[in-house]
Design a protein around this nucleic acid. Structure first.
Lengths: 191, 191
DNA sequence: GTCTATAATTTGATAGAC
DNA sequence: GTCTATCAAATTATAGAC
């Protein structure tokens, strides 16, 4: 039977949850071990038992976010759904961040900060964007019952992701979630 | 003749320059009085002579950025240029941030951080977005020789700004400036 | 796995001399 | 307008007991 270091890993999860919330509100530089510890209900020294340093915590946080995001949007090759339905699902993931989480997309935030991030954190942010572009290119390959041109699809993927990330920022900055909806509506009509 | 507190205001300008660069790289929370002072070549106590606290420095920085940006993009009612030309100029301003400054749009960064910003800084960021949306709506009112529908124009303004701010993030995160160009090309064909 | 205690550094900010 | 000196608090991080 497999050995396991801990039963539930609940503290590590809780740390990542709090760190993610902080980063999605104020960015990587606004994440603090003390405040994480306070929120989780432990001491900051205990956080270092789970993550060697802030860079590794940041990288784990970004990696977990990316993995969860990719799982949410599903398989871009799923033959059971159309390109339009896949795009709708992608838009829904951003909408969820805005309206349910009421936070930025973590990697959108990290992307904006990219030049100031420790190497491992920056790499995880980069990975998120590359995964998203690939996913969108695959999902948008066939829309309207037709197979599109590769360069067009690449451009559309970039536009979709740019518009949604930007719409998150604008909606949150203006405090008007309908701004996101109006962008999303146009994005979904793009394909 | 008008009294004036100082001749050139050069230190104040230098402080704002450095603060802006720091904020556009790492966000508001990564701006530090000590590091500003080091870069300018003064002591951190001297920075407090020009700005009472970090919030006021941040607000002044955002205000100056907005004013400069609006001046760069010009008069949206200028009868000498078409809506298409105005949009091209708007896109150019974002392109300049990416390729010349090699930094984020300051207010795009502050917009992402909005929930974690001191009140005055957040208000300046909000002002930037409202000014931009208004500018775009005015500039895009007449394109292709026709006057568009108000709701369409509002939506287009939001999409243009969202896409460009998002494209800045994606291009910087992936390290590929052509990603911005591909988004910009589609945005300019939108009108 | 969590704690106390602590180190070394950085942070925003103030008082007061020049 | 800039400086020295200083402060209280916060930061990342470590050592070692339990």
């Amino acid at each position: 039977m497999p050995k396991r270091a801990q039963k539930h890993d609940s503290t590590k999860h809780a740390i990542l949850d709090v760190a993610e919330r902080m980063a999605r509100e104020g960015g990587y530089h606004d994440v603090s071990f003390r405040r994480i510890a306070d929120d989780v209900g432990i001491k900051s020294a205990s956080v270092f038992h789970h993550f060697a340093n802030k860079e590794q915590l940041g990288a784990a946080m970004a990696r977990r976010y990316s993995d969860r995001f990719m799982e949410t949007i599903g398989d871009p090759r799923d033959p059971g759904t159309t390109g339009e339905e896949k795009l709708a699902r992608y838009i829904k993931a951003f909408s969820h961040a805005l309206k349910v989480d009421r936070q930025m997309c973590l990697c959108g935030m990290l992307g904006a900060e990219i030049d100031s991030l420790p190497k491992d954190v920056a790499n995880e942010a980069r990975r998120f964007f590359n995964l998203n572009i690939d996913w969108l290119e695959t999902a948008l390959t066939r829309t309207g019952g037709k197979t599109g041109k590769k360069t067009d699809i690449h451009g559309k993927a970039l536009l979709v992701m740019s518009a949604l990330d930007g719409a998150l920022i604008i909606s949150r900055a203006t405090g008007d979630t309908s701004h996101f909806d109006q962008v999303a509506e146009q994005v979904s009509r793009l394909v």
